[in-house]
Amino acid sequence: MRECPGLLTQRSGSRDDSDSELTALLSRCASGDRAAFRSLYDAQSARLHGLALRITRDPGLAADATHDAFVQVWNQAVRFDPSRGAAGAWLTSIVRYRALDITRRRVREKPGYEPPEQEDESPDALAQLVTSAEGAALRHCLEELEPDRRALLMQAYADGLSHSELAEKTGTPLGTIKSWIRRSLAGLKRCLES
């Protein structure tokens, strides 16, 4: 490990001081700076791999997702536009979408494939969110939702569960799940903007 900037916290996925460092690293990556890419990897690989592992529930698939995400970051760093969103959120999205694609393709290609069960979120999981101002606001707004609706959103995001997987897991009709999630998301947005 070469540079490992202390400010680049592995848990942060939102805009703050460490995000401006990530933005600077991405801009150096865009101009072909390999040292910056290595620093970015050192700073973010465990955070992103954790997300990939949680969604894929398979170490091999998670490694593929993390690999693909970093290759994409290197190739597309020129396309990162800080005016459209924070660097941490951009990295988070790249690895999540990759992990979702890989996992769902596996499920499609191997109809019998059952990813191992995921443990439910611990009751104090929301406490993890208070690592930034945005996290605190999001936590506050999630707490405004009914506990079961809140749990649905958290499972969807962290575990990468689709509408139908959530319906199956909770024994709730698909249409009900869809409308619960829509209403929760709309409520979340209203609360965050108020």
Partner: peptide
């Protein structure tokens, strides 16, 4: 993506 990004803190780094 930015609004929901703090939720990624729910997942422990590995």
């Amino acid at each position: 993506e930015e609004r929901l990004a703090p939720l990624s803190a729910l997942v422990a780094p590995v």
